[in-house]
Amino acid sequence: MSGNWIEVCAADEIDEEDVIRFDHGGRTFAVYRSPDDEYFATDGLCTHEHIHLVDGLVMDDIIECPKHNGRFNYKTGQAKGAPVCVNLKTYPVKVEAGSVFIALG
């Protein structure tokens, strides 16, 4: 998969401790910038009712679904308890020359 890096946006287009939506190839992803300035990516839809996570709140390493407050660790994709029980898929991310890239498997 490492050969398939897709450019998402400029690194400074994502605020610290925030998330943006990225659509590519008919799929939707969520790309995060953590409070300590690292970047991460997951599937863009909550595993509970397929709501776009981009409208949710990022606090530390948690993204919370805007609809029913399902919580995931966006660094690992781990579901953090009811109502979500299915983990989020995560994707490798790198920052090069001021841009964020995501590797889609």
């Binding site: 709501i51 776009h52 409208d55 949710g56 709140l57 919370e64 805007p66 407050n69």
Partner: peptide
């Protein structure tokens, strides 16, 4: 519309 108010309400 949609989840426009969700983040602020959560905060």
């Amino acid at each position: 519309p949609g989840n426009a108010v969700a983040r602020d309400i959560r905060l």
